[in-house]
Amino acid sequence: MNVQQQPAFKAGDYKSDITPIWCPGCGDFHVLLSATKALAELGTPPEKIAVISGIGCSSRIPAYTNCYGFHGVHGRSLALGAGLKVARPDLTVMVMSGDGDGFSIGGNHFLHACRRNIDMTYIVMDNRVYGMTKGQPSPTTEPDWDSALSPGGTGLSPFHPLVIALASGANFVARSFSGNIKATTQTIVEAVRHPGFSFVEILSPCVTFRPDESSWKTQTHSASVEATDDPARAARRIMTDDGFNVGILYRGKRKPYDIHVEDTFKDPAILGEEFAV
């Protein structure tokens, strides 16, 4: 019998009363739903959570939650989040952005956030397109995807976020499909609970500029094996999958970065003494 303590919070407690501007059918609606469900499951009070984003469709998400939010400049959400977490280790910091924001303009921060391994969760809603600017190819777009900016396609191999995350030192690596609300919820719960830097790529279709992505619903499939703590195994697995393998792929054991601001401070008057001659 599944009778348990009633949770202190419901998913609705993490949702704001603002209606998203996302196109109906957008995968980001599912991500919002999964994230709020996950937060309810985690039970952290909304005021103890910060949702940080950059620029793009998915980066509109903070205001749609009932948490503290920061809608920053393009590509720098991880830096905002890192500063916040170091300054306020008591908060749950979730950085949520998109493939253009996170992997293109914010690419360098992605590498170093993985490497730094601060205890925070990075969720990238990957729709393989810049939606807010009307459909340009992003780092994860297929090489032959035709667009006004790159007629006939870019001809470039897509960026592989999971491999990069793993190689750069992320401590938790997962892929999910937005439509799988249950699995995505559970993945976010585990990502937040896992110590260190957790990276979750959520395939989140763009109905407007990538209607072809409606096939993701049937293309995605669960990872047939359990998550590993061996980065080499995880890398082999990710490198050889078809990009639609969803599930938790890697749970690392690295110690999270531990530099942080304390709750209380000593009097800075002690600091002048070194200059006295």
Partner: peptide, 21 residues
């Protein structure tokens, strides 16, 4: 009292909710 994740629904969400996708 049932936690949201523990409802015994067959799919991703409760059966009567329209798929937003």
């Amino acid at each position: 009292e049932i936690r949201p994740v523990d409802f015994k629904f067959p799919g991703e969400e409760s059966p009567e909710a329209l798929d937003m996708g």
